[in-house]
């Protein structure tokens, strides 16, 4: 049942890339969580939901984990987790700093 909302309705139609490939200072829209149900639900609770915009703010020294801005909060994920999250490649844009 949970599989049905891990994916954005437009998932099949857009070219996607991995969230781990996002450059610092860029943001993009999440399309799909390519993770087992439990994990996906966990991350969705924290804001990594298909349709939501996330930005890569910076990486930890050494390049891993990655620090994302989601719903105004900053959350760090390991690179291998971020690799399982697909983003819409056409939605990638620079993060506007207020």
């Amino acid at each position: 049942m949970q599989l049905s909302f891990k994916k954005h309705p437009a998932a099949a139609l857009v070219p996607t890339t991995s969230l781990a490939d996002l450059l610092p200072g860029r943001q993009a829209v999440i399309v799909e969580l390519d993770l087992p149900g439990e994990l996906a639900t966990r991350l969705m609770t924290l804001g990594f939901v298909p349709g939501n915009t996330v930005a890569l703010v910076r990486t930890a020294p050494g390049g891993d984990p990655l620090v994302f801005r989601v719903d105004g909060a900053e959350l760090a994920l390991r690179r291998d987790t971020a690799q399982q999250i697909r983003i819409d490649s056409e939605s990638i844009s620079p993060l506007e700093e207020p």
């Binding site: 439990e38 984990p65 959350l75």
Partner: peptide, 9 residues
């Protein structure tokens, strides 16, 4: 368990 490492800053 498959709980990902998530750290809130």
């Amino acid at each position: 368990e498959p709980i990902p490492f998530v750290l809130e800053l």
